[in-house]
Each structure stands twice: as C-alpha cells, then as structure tokens.
Amino acid sequence: MTRPSDVKPREGEVRGTRWEEYVVGDHLPEMRFTLTPDVIREYEEAIDCTHERHEADGRHVAVPSVLCVYLMAVLYRKYPPAQGGIMAANDFDFHAPIRADVDTDIVADGRIEEKFEKRGRKYVRYSVQFRRVHDGELIATAVNTSTFPAVEEQPPQWREQREEVA
C-alpha cells in the first residue's frame, strides 16, 4: 500500500516553493505507488461513494478520480508546497479502469506547463500522466492549475520557518 502521505511532501515540512522558482518545461520525475483496495475504499468514503456499485467487465472498479489524491504529490516532490495554496482548475481524462479489488502498481510523472499572473494572483499549471507499471498502459492524464500565496500571505509561524530554512 502507498498512502498519499507516504509519497507527498506536506505543507510546512520544508520551505515552500516560491512562484518564481517554478521552471516552465521542467520535468516532474517519476513517482511510483501501489493503489490498494484500502486506499480506494477510504477515498470513496471521503467522496460519499461506495465502489460496490461500480463495475466494468464484471469486476468492481474504482471511481477513477481516486488518482486525485496522488496528483499534487507529483508536483510537490519536485516543488514542495507553500501553505495556503488554492486550486483554480483541474482536468482529468481517463483511459483505463482501475480494479477496486486488487493492488495496482502505478507510475506517474509530469511537466510544468505554464505559470502566469492574473488579477494579482500567481498561478502554476502542470500536467501529469498515470500509467500501469506492468504493461505501461495509460490510465489517466491530468492538468492542474493552482495558485500559491505570496510570502506575506503566509501565517506568521510558516513565514518564520521559511526564513529560517531559506
């Protein structure tokens, strides 16, 4: 089992990335994880869904958006998160079912696509693709746009930490 918290740097653990530090075109390195029935069940409970009612080819399948809980980790492993990030937009395209009754080994990687300012906010857009490890089959692709607060918008305790480790 790979819980998202096993692979995802968490806000406040290390200095959060400044917007100026995101490099457009940068590759977000491979992240491998094992999606298990336990994680699928916990995710589906968190979105008020029960996987028992979803089937494909006679087998229980996960709501494919379960991959959402690993999405930000692909970015954060290269660019650790600042406190107070807000999501602006998110796109997902699904390509293959994920069985809900067995473990699935998945590899994800991505790319910084764009960064821009709009109405005084600073945004980063990045893409991620998720593939099954054993045969390389594409499971899903995603494009996420998030905005991260400037240093002065960080709460004081996080601001101080940023200054200490910068």
Partner: peptide, 10 residues
C-alpha cells in the same frame, strides 16, 4: 485531508 495526505491549513 487524511486520505489526500495534506496539511494545508486553509
């Protein structure tokens, strides 16, 4: 937040 593995205080 628990399953998502985050600690974003917002």
């Amino acid at each position: 937040g628990v399953i998502n593995g985050d600690r974003d205080i917002i």
